[in-house]
Amino acid sequence: MKVCVYGAGAIGSLIAGRLACVSGIEVSVVARGEQLDAISRQGIHIVDASGEVTAHVKATDNPASLDVQDYVFLALKQHQLLDVVNSIEPLIGENTSLIPPTTGIPYWYFYGQPGAHGNRRIDRLDPGGTLWRAIPPQRVLGCVFRVAAQVVAPGAVHQDGSYAKLPLGEPDGSVSARVRRLSEAMCAAGFESPVVDNIRSWLWTKMISSLCWNPVAALTLATWGELAASPGVVDVVRRMMQEADAVACALGGPPPIAVEERLAAARSAPHHKMSMLQDLERGRPLEYQPLADSIEAMRDIAGLGTPTIDSVLALLRLRANRG
C-alpha cells in the first residue's frame, strides 16, 4: 500500500509516522521548510502516552517526484486546499482515494446523501464548484481527526493524551473495499479508526468541537483543561454546541456523541492547547473562517439561528484583526 500525506503539521506528521511503522505500507510526505529538512534527515519523531518512536519516510516538496498513490491524506488547513489541487495530480491514479481536510463542513457534504439535499453543492464553501471538479467527490473518503497533537520541534510531534479516534467512511455510507483496507491500516498504526456508516455525523462532531473550543481558547489564552475547569466557559461552549447540534440534526447528521461527553473530553488532555491558540502564539493567521463559513452556510440552509456562536465569532474576528 502506498500512502502520501500532503502536509506535515501535527496531524499529518502523526498519521505519516505511525503508518510508516506498519509493515507493507510505503509512506511519503510532502512538506516544506524546516519540517522537510528535519524529516528528510532524521525522520518523524513521535512522543505519546506509550513512549517514543522515530519513523523514516520519503519526504519531498515536489509531489511529481513520487509515484501514484493508493491513498492521499490532504493534511492541510482548509483554506490551503485550493492552492494544492493542481500539484496533487501526479499522485492520482485510476484507483487513488483522497482524504481532504475536515476542519469545517467539507464541500462534498451532500454528495451521495438521500433526500431533498442530495448532491447539493454548497457555493459558500466551494465557490463555483472548483473543489468539486478538482477533487471529485467519488474519489473522497471521509476521515475525522479526533486527536490532540502539536509539533514541538521540526520533525517532532507530541500527541497530547491517549485519545486518537479517526473514524472513516464513504460519503454514501457504504462499506467499500477501499475504506475497509484503509481502516485496517490505520488500526494497525495504533489509531481507533473504525468504518462508520454515518461519516457526516462524525464530521459534525469534529467541526462543532473546533468551532466551540478553538475560539474561546484563542480569546482566553487558556489550555483545554483550564477551559474545562471554568463553569462559566463550559456553559458558553455548551450553548454553542447545542445550537450547532440543532443545525446538524436538521440536515441529517446528528452528532453521535452527546454534548456532555464532548465537554468531558477536554479533561482527557488538560495541558493541550487548541490549534487556534497554538497559531495565535506563533503569530500565524487564525483559521476561523472555514468554521464560520461552515456554520453560517449550513444554518442558512436549515433556516435556524445560532446567536451564541455568532457572538463568540464576532469577538474572535476582532481578536484576529488585531494581529
Rank of each mutant, 00 (worst) to 15 (best):
R178V: 10
I25A: 07
H45T: 11
V53P: 00
L14W: 01
Q35S: 15
C21D: 11
I15D: 00
Q278S: 06
D172H: 03
D37S: 14
P255R: 03
D293R: 15
V157W: 12
V157N: 10
L313V: 13
R41A: 14
A265W: 09
L66P: 01
N198E: 08
P254Y: 05
N198S: 12
M241W: 07
E89V: 14
V57F: 06
C21Y: 05
Y111E: 04
G17A: 14
F191D: 00
P100A: 10
I199K: 01
L74G: 00
A156V: 08
L141M: 12
G51W: 05
P215A: 08
V147S: 07
R18K: 14
M241P: 04
N214A: 08
A59H: 01
A20T: 01
N95E: 15
G43R: 12
P254Q: 02
D172F: 03
S50R: 09
E52K: 13
S23C: 11
R18E: 09
L316V: 06
V234I: 15
P106N: 07
P270W: 12
P270T: 09
T308F: 05
R120S: 14
A149M: 02
L203I: 08
R146M: 12
P194V: 05
V30C: 06
L251H: 13
Q278G: 09
A218R: 04
T102G: 13
V5Q: 03
A217N: 05
D61A: 10
Y288A: 02
A246N: 06
P307N: 01
A164V: 06
E170L: 05
L166T: 04
A250N: 01
K2I: 03
A49C: 14
R317C: 07
P215I: 08
I301E: 08
